[in-house]
Nucleic acid binder design. Sequence first.
DNA 1: CATAAACTCTATAAAAAGGATAGACTTTTT
DNA 2: AAAAAGTCTATCCTTTTTATAGAGTTTATG
Lengths: 142, 142
Amino acid sequence: MLSKKTQYAFHALIHLAEHADKGPILISEIAQEKNISIKFLENILLELKNAGILGSKKGKGGGYYLLKAPKEIPLAKIIRLLDGAIALLPCVSLNYYERCENCRDEAVCGLNDVMSKVRDATLKILENKTLKDILTRNVSIL
Amino acid sequence: MLSKKTQYAFHALIHLAEHADKGPILISEIAQEKNISIKFLENILLELKNAGILGSKKGKGGGYYLLKAPKEIPLAKIIRLLDGAIALLPCVSLNYYERCENCRDEAVCGLNDVMSKVRDATLKILENKTLKDILTRNVSIL
DNA sequence: CATAAACTCTATAAAAAGGATAGACTTTTT
DNA sequence: AAAAAGTCTATCCTTTTTATAGAGTTTATG
């Protein structure tokens, strides 16, 4: 299950993409529209900014905005950023690998084998689907 | 990511299946072999017993044993039992569904749509692969 | 039938994660 | 200069996860 943080991030990114034509968007607008605690959302948007996905403008008329086109933002990237590993086991994670401490040899572990297949099936979707693919409205510009 | 509980459960079940010919297996034997805290493992095996997957025998010469053939135990069942939902979002879970509180209409939510696909791809593997498929040794009997 | 072996059950506690809040600070516009 | 708005750090509370302790119950067996 994805953490609340990642779930909120997706909803916020969707809102930002669907209103990209309106310039910087207020955190408070997103929070209200998507029913998310404003302060918690603040932290999340900040993380997305530090990761180079969002930009922000301070002062009056400020807010957050996408730095990239939605089609350039794979869903897997957002999950890894906020949640870490996508795989079900540390020993089959591509980006957050950890050695298995409960089995003798990962190379012949049947569990490792099956979970690798799950990982591949999941990544095939999450690495190819982007923010653009989950937008509700048609955003012709991006 | 699967919880430690589920990870340990898989390793314990593998051990039980691979030594099914030896009668009841001691908790302590599994704990030592798989490098798991004995008391924590105790709780896990008890849950598996209460779910009808394992049987136990008390007293001297006692221990735990499988109640079903490994090929009758889908991996998805174990995960759902100990971890709950397999899906990445509550709103796409088949067994632990919860309404989405951040979007207006799940029926037209792009996130819901993609995550349903991830769920289906994952379940296609986890519901068809069984304990038998992750055994390291050949257990001809079962 | 006493004893030791082994699972059962309940309670507790430590650690980590998740979720939320507060408030001072900085930047920008007007 | 003042107001608007985002930035940043620190803290706090709750829940979940992981782990441990110990008393209780059952059973084999000598």
